[in-house]
Design a protein around this nucleic acid. Sequence first.
DNA 1: ACACTGACCATAA
DNA 2: ATTATGGCCAGTG
Length: 111
Amino acid sequence: MDKNFFDKVYEVAEQIPYGRVCSYGAIANYLGSRGSARMVGWAMNSSKTSSKNIPAHRVVNSKGLLTGKQHFGGNNTMAELLISEGIKIHNDKIEDFENVLWDPSVELKEY
DNA sequence: ACACTGACCATAA
DNA sequence: ATTATGGCCAGTG
């Protein structure tokens, strides 16, 4: 289809369920390339200008670390949002990361 | 049209 | 253990 990496990232990000998180690499891997993990973050940056409501705070890096928290407004907004959703954060890092990790390649299996 | 950058990840030295 | 580099795609200068 006419969907590029960007659009796919948006769709996956929107499908992240409540109380769950997703990693850039997981999305990239689901799309078929781990290298495009950088683009996932780029899409999140554009998500602010996007018409969609992208829960970018639910997207973290492979280590469950809130790498993009600085892009949420410069404060720990991202961590507080995740905590508000029931996800436990400690020192900008997700606890039980694997327990709350929502992997599209596992949950969505195929697209 | 070319070069660099960007919220990453994995491997090599 | 840490540092460097390759890889991928799109956007911007």
